[in-house]
Design a protein around this nucleic acid. Structure first.
Lengths: 186, 186
DNA sequence: GCAAGTGATGACAGTTGCTGTCATCAAGTT
DNA sequence: AACTTGATGACAGCAACTGTCATCACTTGC
């Protein structure tokens, strides 16, 4: 992360990383599948935490409620590490290759959620959709949390994002948002 | 696509592609940024179509309705090319690198949607969330459409997926899904 | 207390994706 | 006919990864 932050991801060579870490290039690749994976080590724990939280959500919970439970558990885990998350995210945002890797990790989470939901008796297609929706909410919430300077913590932002999603889905009772004018097509 | 289908993406070298196409490896890279990009040529047109449809949706439409309009336009475009989509998707599903590329294209679409929504006067965070939700619905719908053998066409599957999302978001009026038992944690 | 296995590391060598650079050549322009 | 322009080929070169073998510390069974 030091090197990636100093000179950028692409400008950093694996040889340099290995040198600073005091080992061989070959050894680096024994620990990390590729150059990007260094930044995504914790994904497995996150996956497990999320899956467990969804699996053990109250039986009475609807699919969306169960998933919300899981995301808040993840939020609680990340909540203390905001500065770290910010630094990490700055590196990722600066490089498309890293964004790709992050996206496939999130997609994998969506798949895991869908699987657990099916084990809970949710129909296949609905479980898949719910998994995708969950990651959509998480992505939006996480982005807000990282960008904002104010006091809201991640679990709260996640809860509010779920609320916004519900509000979006029931437009009739919602106060109409201010719409200005049409976008100019390019 | 022929070569990727024949022997797999990773087992295909750019030299082989160039040879079959009757040109040089160097020329290949002048037309495609990298080996994966070959499969994602139409993304720009898709982007434009989607953005325009959202931009010119009725002013009275809520954000979600505007976005649904856009997705159905995309669905209408793809609708005739189901067999092609299937072949393409089989190749992509078989390789993580290609999935990463696909995911970042979809994320880019989500970003474009968010931008257009902001131009329509939707608040920043809400626009971002809506963009992500739209791609979540699209991904789930597209997967169903490609996998299924039955008669439903893509725009219809998209509409139904939006309906399912609304149903998920208003659990009280919904008949409770059959829940069997908790998933075993691994 | 020693031999045998085990797992992590180093040391190469090799493949492949991708880039920079220059020459060539066809086609249109003045 | 000279001149630009755009696409292509022909190298050369870098860096990410992989296969393979030797080494070496550490454990384990006897």
């Amino acid at each position: 992360m030091e090197l990636y932050a100093e000179r950028g991801f692409e400008q950093t060579t694996v040889a340099e990383i290995a040198e600073r870490a005091g080992l061989t290039e070959r050894t680096f690749f024994r620990h990390y599948a590729d150059k990007r994976e260094v930044l995504f080590g914790g994904a497995d724990q996150l996956n497990e935490l999320l899956v467990n939280a969804v699996a053990y959500a109250p039986e009475a919970a609807t699919p969306l409620e169960a998933v919300a439970t899981g995301l808040e558990a993840v939020g609680a885990l990340l909540q203390g590490r905001r500065e770290f998350a910010r630094r990490r995210q700055a590196i990722i945002s600066a490089n498309p290759q890293l964004q790709e890797r992050e996206l496939i990790k999130l997609a994998s989470l969506a798949g895991a959620i869908a699987e657990v939901l099916r084990a809970r008796g949710v129909a296949g297609a609905l479980a898949g959709l719910t998994g995708e929706l969950a990651m959509a909410v998480f992505k939006a919430a996480f982005e807000q949390w990282v960008e904002q300077a104010d006091e809201r913590e991640l679990p709260q932002v996640i809860r509010e994002s779920f609320e916004e999603m519900r509000a979006l889905s029931t437009p009739r009772r919602q106060t109409a948002p201010a719409r200005r004018r049409r976008a100019a097509a390019r």
